[in-house]
């Protein structure tokens, strides 16, 4: 055995260097990889709890319509029947829970409507879309349309 390693000391040193390098990698990996990684998939298991801990911001429209029955009925008649309340009004969980005195502000009709209805070639042809400057130079869309059931009022 001793004879085998004769004149190979430099190679043994290089091999040791490689082994030390690989061990250092393994140790460094152990330190760097967060606990719980890979438990459920290619992610940190604790991330699920972190996400769960986020406060709920959206009430969901089932909650909205419990109080706002008149608007819900009006909306059900028109083309916006399947648009969630908070898509235009923004997240309102705290309002729904009555935890704050916050009164939701009315969305600016022109900015809100044009977000979806400005003409764009990539939208399906059947989707109602306008060139704002040609359709109505200025003024709120709600001057002619009802927001919740957007036929001409």
């Amino acid at each position: 055995m001793r004879h085998f390693f004769e004149h190979k000391e430099h190679l043994v040193r290089m091999a040791v260097l490689f082994v030390v390098g690989i061990l250092a990698f393994v140790v460094f990996r152990e330190i760097m990889v967060p606990a719980g990684f890979g438990e459920y998939g290619h992610f940190r298991a604790g991330a699920l709890d972190d996400v769960r801990a986020h406060p709920v911001k959206y009430a969901g429209q089932a909650t909205c319509v419990q109080c706002h029955t008149d608007i819900a009925e009006q909306r059900a008649q028109g083309k916006h029947a399947h648009i969630g309340c908070e898509a235009c009004h923004g997240p309102l969980a705290t309002h729904a829970e009555g935890k704050s005195d916050e009164v939701p502000t009315k969305p600016d009709p022109r900015a809100t409507c044009l977000r979806c209805h400005t003409q764009n070639v990539t939208k399906p042809k059947t989707f109602p879309q306008i060139v704002p400057a040609e359709h109505s130079a200025e003024g709120p869309c709600t001057a002619c349309h009802q927001a919740h059931s957007p036929s001409l009022s």
């Binding site: 004149h7 430099h10 190679l11 040193r13 260097l17």
Partner: peptide, 19 residues
């Protein structure tokens, strides 16, 4: 760079060549 080893005997170099 030599990893502190100065063995450049013929046998050592022959092994290097093979590796």
């Amino acid at each position: 760079m030599a990893l502190g080893s100065d063995d450049i005997s013929e046998r050592a170099l022959l092994t290097d060549d093979k590796v």
